[in-house]
Write a protein that binds this DNA or RNA. Structure first.
Lengths: 348, 348
DNA sequence: AGATAAGTTGTAAACGATTTCAAACTATAG
DNA sequence: CTATAGTTTGAAATCGTTTACAACTTATCT
């Protein structure tokens, strides 16, 4: 169907080697032959078969990207940045959604390796999990957003601990003494670190916490889980006056729950989230939150991956350089924490 | 580095043909040899090279997906559904973001074809544009969300005209006489159709429209554009009492603008959007909007594409079946249109 | 002119699988 | 015991490129 390099060669009256040379802009091709070949290419409407090229070159110019779900705006946004950045290196990306499922993740890695992707970027990984193929094959890969598969993996993440600490501390400084936390699954090290930040902030402020003050929500059944979590948290006589949610979408859901129950935000309950989703900044919402440097994370991950791929291909993987980056996020103060109520601020 | 089928063959003491046979579960391989081969595979930690396989099979089990931007939740969500659906057909997807740029779109199609993807799903296409490679190569492809590249392309879209008609008509029935429209670029046929629906609804209700009642916002510079568009619309003495936005994110931005200017929603200005983004349903927002059947669209697009690929591969492209699907969206009534204000409804 | 270098091309071997074809082996029936 | 059909295997071609190597031309220098 498609014409091949051989067709071109025949039509132009040269060898396939020569065609390949003009295709790849080698020097030392006589202008005259180059033109003959170019004409043949034009005439036969030829396009190179990148699959064949990949096979002999040993590079596909494809990288694999595994994220939890594109329903999470963080992943959607970073995926786009990754795609665009990869493009600067002439790479395409094959996108997989793991649904945060360990088995699927492992299968994707296998499949992508079999497809001979040049490298892997993984945004969806779990605390203690090791992925066999990632160890056995020596494909370059970079983690982002989460770390902790095994010791020596390169990654770029947020400083989750610090960010959570500051977020909670902000609530403390606004006078809150009863601060609860609504968090995602602890198998994500990011969540675990945010929890630690929360506890440290409480401890430094000498505040007590209670069992019903920290509630875990499972991502698979957010709606049901959230309802019961919030019930446990708010139906106790000893109610929190502020809630730190480890993700904006949890914060938004909490707000929804609270408003439906007749609580005012932030007067009755102050809320701080984490992520800074686009909608969180909307004036009808005004969620105080931790702004992730999502774009930086995505871009850095790709740049590092490309560097590793380059090393692999040139065999210069000499240096034992590990690469672990921890970005400093920023607290974005809006309405939901009550900081705009002047009389409250700095008046503990 | 990686072991090949030849290594397996040697170790197992058979030919590569036999190895291939057990790899592909052919019948007629003696149990004993099968086991020898399996052992060798195990021993050498062998994984098939899918690139090589693609070359001889003439199928990559890869499809290309081109969307405008993952920043648009509609594309993020549909991309995920497409990825998951494709997976059921054992296909991976290479995702490209065109940024709604015609040239890029064309280049992506070229590149993806060169990569020998089995098919293409395109969500980002323009009204009059033709993409040369789509015509010249006979790669199967399906459009979704927008149509209208050239006459005979398969597509699945919303019934944008009807949906817009109903949305505007809803405002009419709520008693509004001055209904404006805030819309995206008309190069998208979806937008153009929504405009037509708007005009038809006004016409049927014998309502007048004014120049400053319809404002176009360009996606590249939404913020600046929106500000000036809304200024033109609202600073006229003859102000609309209701606005139909052809996209939720425009509606949300409009709400933000209006609230900052001190208007109350929906008492001063009623708003209806289009998309039903997740956040539009949030109780702090309550945007009345048109619910797209995004998931259906995505799933159907993949299913059709796979069908076409199957036809291509078996050569059964006999029937002249064109496939054009128009899904019926649904109006989702929430607070922003004012329908909950009982005294207004059905009392024009 | 002859040596040397530089430019230009073609032959053939990869890359790692699948697949056609024929050959060899085994079992069954007459 | 032989014909026949059904199993089981391997040799070699194939997919569409790139590339190492050798060979042949042409230009340059002494």
């Amino acid at each position: 169907m498609n014409s091949t390099i051989l067709d071109i060669a025949k039509l132009a009256g040269v060898s396939t080697a020569t065609v390949s040379r003009v295709l790849n802009n080698y020097p030392f091709v006589k202008e005259q032959t180059r033109n003959k070949v170019l004409e043949a290419i034009e005439a036969l409407n030829y396009y190179p078969d990148l699959v064949a090229r990949s096979m002999v070159k040993g590079r596909t110019y494809n990288i694999g990207l595994i994220v939890g779900t594109l329903g999470n705006p963080f992943f959607a946004e970073t995926s786009e940045v990754i795609i665009k950045t990869a493009e600067m290196y002439k790479c395409h990306v094959t996108l997989c959604v793991s649904e945060e499922n360990e088995t699927k993740l492992s299968e994707y890695v296998d499949l992508l390796c079999n497809k001979r992707v040049d490298g892997l970027i993984i945004g969806s990984i779990f605390k203690g999990v090791t992925i066999p193929r990632l160890k056995s094959s020596n494909i370059p890969y970079v983690l982002y957003n989460r770390k902790n598969v095994f010791e020596d993996a390169d990654y770029v993440i947020q400083d989750n601990f610090q960010a959570a600490y500051e977020a909670v501390n902000h609530l403390v400084r606004l006078g809150h003494r009863k601060i609860a936390i609504l968090h995602g699954p602890q198998v994500f090290d990011s969540v675990a670190e945010r929890l630690e930040g929360y506890y440290k902030a409480l401890q430094d402020a000498k505040l007590k916490t209670y069992d019903h003050f920290h509630q875990e929500v499972h991502f698979e059944k957010v709606d049901a889980d959230l309802e019961s979590s919030m019930n446990r948290m708010m139906e106790d006589k000893n109610r929190p006056t502020a809630i730190f949610a480890t993700a904006d979408f949890l914060a938004l859901a909490a707000i929804e729950y609270l408003m439906n129950k007749g609580y005012r935000i932030p007067e009755d309950v102050a809320i701080v989230g984490f992520d800074n989703l686009r909608l969180s900044g909307h004036s009808m919402i005004g969620l105080t939150t931790v702004g992730q440097r999502a774009e930086d994370m995505a871009r850095l991950a790709v740049e590092r991956l490309m560097q590793k791929i380059e090393q692999t291909v040139t065999g210069n993987s000499s240096e034992e350089d590990s690469w672990k980056i921890r970005l400093k996020p920023e607290l974005i103060i809006r309405r939901s924490c009550g900081a705009h109520l002047k009389d409250m601020i700095f008046n503990p």
